[in-house]
């Protein structure tokens, strides 16, 4: 269970006058399901990169349950991310030549934490996302199937937060629907926080909270009406 507190965050790139992202204050509760929306260049990706430690902010704090990951070394951030963050990306980043289950287990194996229990969990997860052939080579799969493998990989180590960057953007409606549902199910099951960057209205509508970014600033932060009402 992780909670996030962002304080005085700014990300600026040399050569650009305005910072690409400014977040004065933001708090996300554990197990919260959050959608991040906004147009192209609104700073969504930068926001995701900074809170997952893929990128270091120019200033400010990113506190995950009180731990400021901006102060960690690169190696330590990689290690922290491996332990706490499950990433699902628009173009999957699966590794061809390996089977579905090998892809699910790859990060854990490289970090030397893949024990018997984890291998069993990998098979269960693949079953859970509706893939019956764990030994199928990844390059022979459809895009929807690939994203499901990516979700299984993201939740393997029961991360405190699942971060999905446009998970349905490259999928057809039906596959997108499945992927959205799986993301929510998995996050609920592992009681993980879920942060989804998306344009997919149907996916956004299923999340508890919606943060809208424009020109690097949060311009709207609303809870779903049904829930709020």
């Amino acid at each position: 269970m992780l909670e996030l507190a962002v304080d005085g965050l700014a990300v600026a790139f040399p050569g650009l006058d305005a910072p690409v992202l400014v977040v004065e204050h933001l708090a996300l509760r554990p197990s919260e399901h959050v959608a991040v929306t906004g147009g192209s260049g609104s700073g969504k990706s930068t926001f995701i990169n900074v809170i997952t430690g893929l990128e270091r902010p120019t200033s400010g704090k990113v506190l995950w349950s009180g731990k400021d990951i901006t102060r960690l070394s690169e190696t330590a951030r990689d290690r922290w991310r491996a332990e706490h963050v499950g990433l699902v990306m628009q173009d999957f980043h699966l590794f061809p030549g390996l089977s579905a289950v090998e892809n699910v287990l790859l990060p854990a194996r490289l970090a030397r934490v893949a024990d018997k229990a984890l291998i069993a969990r990998a098979h269960d997860l693949l079953n859970g996302v509706g893939l019956s052939r764990p030994d199928q080579k990844i390059e022979t799969m459809s895009r929807g199937e690939m994203q499901r493998v990516a979700i299984a990989r993201a939740v393997l180590r029961k991360p405190g937060v699942i971060v999905a960057d446009e998970p349905t953007a490259s999928l057809d409606v039906e596959a997108g629907e499945t992927v959205g549902r799986l993301l929510l199910d998995m996050a609920t099951e592992t009681k993980s926080m879920l942060i989804v960057v998306s344009h997919d209205q149907r996916l956004i509508d299923r999340l508890d909270r919606r943060i809208t970014l424009r020109a690097g600033r949060i311009v709207a932060d609303s809870f779903r009406e049904e829930v709020a009402a």
Binding site: D78, R79, A82, E83, V85, M89, H93, L106, L110, A111
Partner: peptide, 20 residues
């Protein structure tokens, strides 16, 4: 680069990436 970046994003330790 992308492959290596992804490996790191998914949490592969530095030594593993280097070793690969």
């Amino acid at each position: 680069r992308r492959q290596i970046g992804a490996l790191r994003a998914f949490g592969a330790p530095r030594l593993s990436v280097f070793a690969i």
